[in-house]
Amino acid sequence: MIQVQNVSKHYGQLVAVDNVSFHLEKGDVLGFLGPNGAGKTTTMRIITGYMPPTKGSVYIADIDVFEDPQAAKSYIGYLPENPPLYEDMVVREYLDFVADIKQIPKKEKNNRIHYVMEKCGITDVSKRIIGHLSKGYRQRIGIAQALINDPEVLVLDEPTSGLDPMQIIEIRELIHGLSGERTVILSTHILPEVTMICSKVVIINKGKIALEESLERLTNKMDGVENILLKTRYSGEEIQDQIISLPNVSDIRLGLESELIIEQKKGTDIREEISELVMRNGWGLLEMRPVTHNLEEVFLRAITSEGN
């Protein structure tokens, strides 16, 4: 359904996207991950035909987006990072306008507008001025706008950013309900979101693809390895040195909040040995628990190994 082939985008000297390729089948939901400034938005803008790539090409339903943009764009619904809203318009009028520029036939227009308003839960604000609505409603109007032409391809750039937890759950459920027949690309930096709704993951860092994997294979890979998280009152170099010299420890590194993540060899349990070590040295044990190898770590590993 979507084919991205060797796409690069240069802004002068800066390489924003560097030789990115991936393809999606009909019905795939792609979680597009990466740190800020990794090139997610640029890639999505290229896929939607907003800007041409410096090199490479994009095909939507076998149509080259830059050979025949008109045809390709009619397959796409796009929610940019900031929802594209006319603040001075009434919600209903705005959707009417979007339906017009997306060339929806007059007969279907009313039905489509009612359908997307219903689906996105904005029916009760349909007569309000967009500029007066809350961030959550705006985001929903943005999604409604992307859905109005019943697109086969849905491109959503951080659809849940800036929303409160309740709204995040609602939008997530909405997206989950929308997938199925549609092909969805969703960028985010909320990692659990990906495990909840995506079927495929692409991690991009500094413009390059750092990892591309189906979620199924990724979870299989992550299974079986169990790490130990360790927090101690005293923190010093020698803790790491002494732990790594234990027989069943294969790796040790600092976690996000400067706690230690200890990787143990498969089929071993080193918790007793570690607690004994901590006690003996009087480092002050604060916390120790097993952590499953989660997406967060895959993500961190993917983007840091790229850096080296």
Binding site: P69, Q70, K73, N82, P83, P84, Y86, V98, I101, K102
Partner: peptide, 14 residues
Amino acid sequence: KSHTAELLFTSPIN
């Protein structure tokens, strides 16, 4: 300013 340029330029109108 209102980011609607992205809407217009990704719509199937020239």
